[in-house]
Design a binder for these strands. Structure first.
Length: 272
DNA sequence: CAATCAACCTGGGTGC
DNA sequence: TGCACCCAGGTTGATT
């Protein structure tokens, strides 16, 4: 479900909502999503702990916490396909729920149970984080670095964009949108891109992710922000989910194919 | 190796 | 109504 703009939106919402609040009670409804061997210990450590900060790396949410014994820990949450982290009321689809000191609830909802919650001393040591590519919106992620990374890769351009080791945070929606705006066919081998195509791809990654954050993400079906609301970027989608509809640029029919097991949308006339 | 596929899950939609 | 598919913002590991 959530890609970088959605996770960033949740991060910003939660930062305002839960910072400096204490956890009064921890309810675990589906232990499966908690990737810790001892659920009782997980609950024990978190009960009475305080939220200090919310951060994001790629699609991973990182909640900095201080336990009762003053030890600093990190609750990491990967929402995968259908996870939601919502502040406010209790939810019937809740899998894990924190009752906070202001009597409100922070609820982790996840219809498909594919999400992962961990409690760690150092989030930087997580395998997922160690393997993760650069943050696309970071100032240190330059066109030169992007070009260099492309030069050492092979395979279809869309598959590379989806690879979190190549770049962190792009998913199926934004990879499709970035390729449309860059006028590159998703099936192109990445080593056939010329300099101007690489430049366009680089600029569009930053531009589209930034625009999507401004719109508070894309709610296609079940994405919700930290307050339980939908995101507005779906109104701006050019290709994702638009199979059979007219290309906004050339009026050709948008195609849908399967690439790397994922639904892939593109305009066969605009994207070469 | 690159590409494909199944697995992890639940639930909504569609067509017979 | 029922049933048998197909689909879904992700990731990983096995196989060809």
């Amino acid at each position: 479900m959530p890609e970088l703009p959605e996770v960033e939106t949740i991060k910003r919402d939660l930062e305002k909502a839960i910072n400096n609040k204490n956890i009064v009670e921890v309810c675990v409804f589906k232990p499966k999503i908690i990737k810790e061997p001892d659920i009782a210990k997980f609950k024990r450590i978190l009960t009475g702990a305080r939220f200090l900060k919310v951060a994001r790396r790629g699609k991973l949410l990182i909640l900095k916490i201080q336990a009762r014994n003053k030890q600093v820990l990190f609750l990491t949450i990967h929402l995968r396909m259908s996870g939601q982290l919502v502040f406010g009321a209790k939810s019937p689809s809740s899998r894990l729920c924190f009752k906070l000191s202001d009597k409100k609830y922070l609820s982790y909802n996840d219809q498909r149970l594919l999400g992962e919650v961990r409690l760690v001393h150092d989030w930087r040591k997580l395998k997922l984080i160690c393997a993760m590519g650069p943050e696309p919106l970071d100032k240190t992620f330059t066109r030169e670095k992007f070009q260099k990374r492309i030069a050492e890769r092979t395979g279809k351009v869309k598959a590379v964009l989806l690879d979190q080791k190549f770049i962190a945070g792009l998913g199926n929606i934004y990879a499709a949108e970035v390729l449309f705006h860059s006028r590159i066919n998703p099936m192109r081998q990445i080593n056939t891109l010329d300099n101007s195509e690489i430049g366009g791809l680089f600029r569009n990654i930053k531009k589209i992710l930034n625009n999507a954050i401004i719109c508070r993400g894309t709610s296609f079906s079940d994405y919700r922000d930290g307050k339980g609301n939908r995101g507005d970027f779906f109104k701006k989608l050019s290709v994702y989910g638009r199979a059979g509809q007219a290309c906004r640029r050339c009026k050709n029919e948008i195609e849908r194919i399967k690439l790397g097991g994922r639904g892939t949308y593109f305009c066969g006339r605009c994207q070469r």
